[in-house]
């Protein structure tokens, strides 16, 4: 398969192939510890002329893939602009171990600041002794929820509400502390932003 014009071996998904080739590509909802989610749409590439999400597209069967085509970069930038507009919290807030992923994605795609007005939640949940949740940094990538439900099979949190009312929610709308959260921290480990951040 040709990747940005260079022959490479196709392995797993397009994202796997891209990353194996040492090419940086944002993938804000795909954690190597978790199944494919397909929510963030920051991993878009052009494959045989179509724009596809690299994380959920098998590499086999694709002849030519471009991460750097003008169209792919433009659309990714657009998605990242919409993503950035969800975050009104302090830009440099210290997050968990994966929080740099979102910062790197922004850094590499130069989203036009203020392209879209902010549309972020304001809820904060400080009830857990080990970590806190800050909706003003959350991009609803669902990694945390997937970690809780499909990795740990605990299901303390979910995404309640549909459309633009969707929000990471413990239990039936309670705090982390009142939920069945066991403080295993898998959600914090997965979060690509500083929305879930360890305390102290």
């Amino acid at each position: 398969m040709k990747l940005n014009g260079v022959s490479v071996e196709a392995t797993g998904s397009l994202l796997d192939t891209v990353l194996a080739a040492g090419i940086a590509l944002p993938h804000l909802c795909k954690d190597d510890n978790l199944p494919v989610i397909g929510a963030c749409r920051t991993c878009l590439v052009e494959a045989d002329g179509r724009i596809v999400a690299a994380c959920s597209t098998p590499a086999a069967g694709v002849q030519e893939c471009a991460t750097d085509s003008e169209r792919a970069v433009r659309i990714r930038r657009g998605v990242l602009e919409l993503t950035a507009a969800m975050q009104s919290g302090p830009a440099g807030a210290a997050g968990g171990p994966r929080s740099a992923e979102s910062l790197e994605a922004y850094a590499s795609h130069a989203p036009r600041p203020g392209q879209y007005g902010l549309r972020s939640g304001t809820h904060a949940d400080l009830s857990n002794p080990f970590f806190s949740f800050h909706e003003d940094a959350c991009i609803l990538c669902a990694r945390c929820v997937t970690a809780c439900q499909e990795l740990q099979h605990i299901g303390a949190i979910g995404i309640a509400g549909r459309g633009h009312t969707a929000r990471v929610t413990p239990g039936a709308g309670v705090s982390f502390r009142e939920s069945i959260c066991t403080s295993c921290g898998s959600c914090v480990a997965a979060c690509p932003t500083s929305a879930l951040r360890p305390k102290g």
Binding site: D32, N33, G96, P97, F130, L151, Q152, T182, S183, C184, G185, S186, A189, P198
Partner: peptide, 22 residues
């Protein structure tokens, strides 16, 4: 500073509990 899970560990397959993590 932080304790991460280890996805390649065959016993824990990327999981930890509160004691190991925090």
């Amino acid at each position: 500073r932080w304790v991460d899970d280890d996805p390649v560990n065959l016993s824990s397959t990327g999981m930890l509990c509160v004691k190991g993590r925090f």
